[in-house]
Structures are given as structure tokens and as C-alpha cells.
């Protein structure tokens, strides 16, 4: 479903040109669970932005479900983000002073879903992440783990086929991080494609495939065998 061919991305910083990606080729199938690893500056965030249609590559093509999205207008990209991709960020990125229900129904609002249906679907999403009883809480009334679960619920609200997670456990303690990963496992079992950036090897190993980037290039691409983990 995702086909990245020879993707490069360079920025101008002052007089210097920074090459964040130097020709990335990657293919992700529907339903895959991929972790992207790499040190700071390896280009993994840039890659994530391109996959998430938040940014366009300098060169190369990115086909999403057979459609070339590497050269789309801002508005077309916004529609793709809205309808097919759910984002989960390290810092949760929830709107301040806004109830969980409203946060989650926001993408539905931008998708043009009528209000009553919106609220029902948002509530459903919150129930999936175990926050069915916290719909009217605002971010500052929720713990970090709960906030991140609201973010996941928001990502799920429009029934996207892709979840992109940028260091989703980065701001959580081990226990709540583990709870979040269980939700991700569940989503993976439901057939949703997940691409996740992480520093944490242990977290990355929850995925079925680990792609490692270094200096703007993919240096390794390994499948993970999960049989052994069941014991713990």
C-alpha cells in the first residue's frame, strides 16, 4: 500500500543544504506493523512526515494505495491526512482546554460528519482505548497515559487504514507505555497498518518489522519473530 521510491529530502539552512533523506526505498504492505529506528538526525522524522503527507519529498515518488501523493496540493494532502491517516505524537498534541470527546470528534468535524453521528463515533473510539468514562475530561484532568490514549482515539475516529506514531511512548512511564503498546497490538490484530518511530529497542520489538535509518538511508530492514515473547 505504501511505496516509497528513491525519496530524497533536503533543506536549506542558511547557506548549507542539509540532506535529511538521501534516496529511501521502502514498501509497506497493508496490515503491517513497522517500527522505524535510528539515531537523532538519521531522517526518521522527515520520513515519517512524508509518509504522513505532512511534507512533500524533494525528489522521488510516494504512492499511497496506488495514488501518487508526492506532489499533491496542500488541501488534497489535508484530505488524505484526514481520512486515511491517524497520527499519534510523542507530546500527545491535544488541544488545550478541550474535552476528550471534542478532541476525538475534531477530525470527524473536518471530514464533514454531522454532529450527532460524530459524538457517537467519538465515544466509540474512546471506549476502544478504555476511556469511555472520561469523555468530558480535559487534557489537564487526565494522566499522561490517558492523554495519549485520547490521542489514539482521535487517530482512530475516522477509521483510518494507517496509524503513524512518532515516539508514542516517549513521554510515558514503562507501565503506561506498555498499556499503550497493548492497544497498538490490538489495532494491528484488527488489520490496521501501523508505522511507528521509536528510540526504544524494546518498544520497536513489539512491531513485526524494524527498519533502521542512518544518515538518510535505510541500513537494515528485519522481520521480528514474536513466538518467543509469549512466555513473559
Amino acid at each position: 500500500m505504501m511505496d516509497l521510491t528513491n525519496i530524497t529530502k533536503s533543506y536549506e539552512m542558511g547557506n548549507q543544504v542539509v540532506h535529511a533523506l538521501r534516496g529511501v526505498n521502502m514498501h509497506v504492505d497493508e496490515g503491517e506493523y513497522v517500527a522505524i529506528m535510528g539515531p537523532s538526525g538519521s531522517g526518521k522524522s522527515t520520513l515519517m512526515n512524508i509518509i504522513g503527507c505532512l511534507d512533500v519529498p524533494t525528489a522521488g515518488t510516494y504512492m499511497l494505495d496506488g495514488i501518487d501523493v508526492s506532489d499533491m496540493s496542500d488541501n488534497d494532502q489535508a484530505r488524505i491526512r484526514n481520512q486515511r491517516i491517524g497520527f499519534v505524537f510523542q507530546q500527545f498534541n491535544l488541544l488545550p482546554r478541550t474535552s476528550a470527546l471534542k478532541q476525538v470528534s475534531l477530525p470527524l468535524m473536518y471530514a464533514g460528519v454531522p454532529r450527532s453521528e460524530r459524538n457517537a463515533r467519538a465515544k466509540e473510539s474512546l471506549t476502544i482505548v478504555g476511556l469511555g468514562d472520561r469523555t468530558h475530561h480535559k487534557p489537564d484532568e487526565l494522566s499522561g497515559g490517558q492523554q495519549q490514549r485520547v490521542a489514539v482515539a482521535r487517530a482512530l475516529a475516522v477509521n483510518p487504514n494507517i496509524i503513524l506514531a512518532d515516539e508514542p511512548t516517549g513521554a510515558l512511564d514503562t507501565k503506561t507505555g506498555e498499556e499503550l503498546m497493548e492497544i497498538f497490538d490490538q489495532l494491528h490484530d484488527d488489520g490496521i497498518t501501523i508505522v511507528m518511530i521509536t528510540h526504544d529497542r524494546e518498544v520497536a520489538e513489539r512491531a513485526r518489522r524494524i527498519v533502521t535509518l542512518r544518515d538518510g538511508l535505510i541500513v537494515s530492514d528485519e522481520q521480528i519473530n514474536h513466538q518467543k515473547e509469549v512466555a513473559s
Binding site: 504522513g52 505532512l54 496542500d74 488541501n75 489535508a78 484530505r79 491526512r81 484526514n82 481520512q83 497520527f87 498534541n93 491535544l94 488541544l95 488545550p96 475534531l106 477530525p107 473536518y110 471530514a111 482521535r154 475516522v158
Partner: peptide, 16 residues
């Protein structure tokens, strides 16, 4: 700014 970024990331158009 961040709020605007979030809204755009989840699908708000320029017009919205």
C-alpha cells in the same frame, strides 16, 4: 501555532 498545526495535521483545510 501548535493548535493550528494539530488541526491541520488531522485534516483542517486552509479554508477551515
Amino acid at each position: 501555532t501548535r493548535e493550528i498545526g494539530i488541526r491541520k495535521a488531522i485534516g483542517a483545510l486552509k479554508r477551515d
